[in-house]
Simulated assay, not measured.
Amino acid sequence: MLAAIADVMAWGESLDQLLECKTGQLVFENFLKTEYSEENLSFWLACENYKKITSEAEMTDAANGIYAEFVRVDALRQINIDCVTREEISRNLSQPGPDCFDSAQRLIYSLMENDCYPRFLKSEIYQALQEQAEQAMKAT
């Protein structure tokens, strides 16, 4: 229980703290769903997993999958990035490396950090969890 309390309190410190915690990711994703912007987190997480791939064949498959799901102009879960970044990724797909999506991932992180995350901290979802954590801390 104490770890969960510490986690909830840490989520308010930075987006990084929130994203480092699996539970934090889930809570943030639920919040983003209410704002119809969960594709941002999904894309960011897909990029984090992509960077861990060591096989060239797997990297190519994963890069094409991420492109089709999030980057392509007609993608179902299209992320909000500028056309220059979108074109850069398209060019990178011919020989995708670990940094293929870095510029787009930085843009999406910045969008989450400056737009979604501050709203998350003010949301009923987070406020309720924070209140529970504070009450639990007082009880211990």
Rank of each mutant, 00 (worst) to 15 (best):
E56A: 12
E58T: 09
M59E: 14
M59P: 01
M59C: 13
T60C: 07
T60Q: 11
T60K: 15
D61H: 06
A62D: 01
A63F: 01
G65W: 04
I66E: 00
A68V: 02
A68E: 14
A68S: 11
E69K: 15
E69R: 15
E69L: 08
V71E: 02
V71D: 01
V71L: 05
V71N: 04
V73P: 07
A75F: 04
R77P: 01
Q78P: 00
Q78I: 06
Q78F: 06
I79F: 04
I79L: 07
I81E: 02
D82Q: 06
D82G: 07
D82V: 05
D82E: 07
C83S: 15
C83F: 13
V84P: 00
R86A: 07
E87S: 11
E87H: 11
E88H: 10
E88Q: 12
S90N: 08
S90D: 09
R91I: 09
L93R: 03
L93H: 06
L93D: 02
S94E: 15
S94N: 14
S94H: 12
Q95R: 13
Q95C: 08
P96D: 04
P96T: 05
G97K: 15
P98V: 15
P98C: 11
D99W: 07
D99A: 11
C100I: 05
C100L: 05
C100H: 00
F101D: 03
F101I: 02
F101R: 00
Q105D: 05
Q105I: 03
Q105P: 04
R106I: 09
L107F: 07
Y109W: 14
Y109K: 09
S110Y: 08
S110G: 14
L111V: 07
L111S: 13
M112L: 01
E113Y: 10
E113N: 15
N114P: 04
N114D: 13
D115L: 10
C116Q: 14
C116H: 12
Y117P: 00
R119L: 15
S123D: 06
S123R: 05
E124T: 14
E124P: 01
E124I: 09
E124Q: 13
I125P: 04
I125K: 06
I125Q: 14
Y126I: 03
Q127V: 15
Q127H: 09
Q127G: 05
L129S: 00
L129I: 03
Q130I: 12
Q130V: 12
E131D: 15
Q132A: 15
A133K: 02
